[in-house]
Simulated scan of single mutants.
Amino acid sequence: MALLSGKRVLVTGSTRGIGRATAELFLAKGAEVIVHGRSRGDVDRTIDELGHRDRITGHAADLARRGETKRLAEEAGAIDILVNCAGIYIEKSIINSDEAFFDRTIEINLTAGFLLSRSLLPSLRQRRGVIVNVSSDAGLLGYGGSSVYAASKGAVIGLTKALAVELAPDVRALCICPGPVATDMMENAVKATSDPEAARRQWASFPLLGRVARPSEIAEAIVFAASPAASFATGSIITIDGGTTAGKRV
């Protein structure tokens, strides 16, 4: 319980999916958590459901708007741990991806994390803090039909490595790369296909372990990376993907 006691943590995208599971686990480890979501209603609902009223606050911000991202940093104040978890995934071929789609994906998946890291850097340096960025196995592999998403997540990996070099030894920076995870974001992508059941089977077939992950399984890796248990790790790219990037059976 005391592993992260007294640590202030901002988890973006923590009203759902991986972010919510991560916020819940940080609370269980004794941290003070700042919940973030796009709408005030989602933030308030999450705070009510997670409990620990003495150690949880929240702010709403649309990370597609830079002014709101900067406001979130101001409202968060001094922190020990930043988890850039918020993201969007919409499957589109490059021929169907216009500039507006590209700009929005990059803004949320990459630029928001950059802006928050830069804005919150003074307190992270002072507290010898940690930045954990959530990328994807798509940042390491080429997924056809998801070129913009893959580009955004590949850039998150590059940003993480550069931050690790630039900010050492004051701040650690690590990157978690999940494979397929059972979140509402994945479910929405599945429902958008012509055959959702076939799409679910296909996603489950990608990992060598033969299933998609639970959000809590990714949260464990995020919290580990941010904790003293990983105190000698920085610049690490941690794949929690069920083997999707290990290779192919032939």
Rank of each mutant, 00 (worst) to 15 (best):
E99H: 11
Q202D: 10
I18K: 02
D98N: 14
P178I: 01
S97C: 12
S5I: 07
A246C: 08
T46L: 05
K7I: 00
S147F: 04
E32M: 09
R118C: 09
A155Y: 04
I218F: 10
V11R: 03
R125P: 00
K70T: 13
K7N: 04
D42K: 10
V190E: 04
E32H: 14
M1G: 13
T183I: 08
A192N: 12
A204L: 03
S152D: 07
Q126L: 12
N109F: 02
N109Y: 02
I94K: 00
A100W: 01
L159F: 14
D54A: 14
E75N: 12
A73D: 10
T160Y: 01
D42E: 15
A230H: 12
G19A: 08
S39T: 15
D44P: 01
V130S: 08
V33C: 04
I88S: 03
A60R: 05
S136D: 07
K29H: 15
P178E: 05
N188E: 15
G242F: 02
V83L: 08
G158D: 09
Y143V: 13
T234S: 14
A198K: 14
S5H: 10
G30Q: 08
V171K: 01
S136K: 06
L209I: 15
V83M: 06
G247P: 07
A168N: 05
R201D: 13
E166Q: 12
K70G: 00
S14T: 07
V212T: 14
I18Y: 05
S39L: 12
T57E: 12
V190G: 00
G210W: 04
E75S: 12
P122E: 10
I18A: 03
T15L: 06
G144P: 07
H52S: 14
A64P: 04
L72F: 09
L140I: 12
I106G: 03
R38V: 10
I94P: 02
Y89D: 09
G113T: 07
I131H: 01
A246T: 11
K153H: 12
D44G: 02
P228G: 08
Q202V: 00
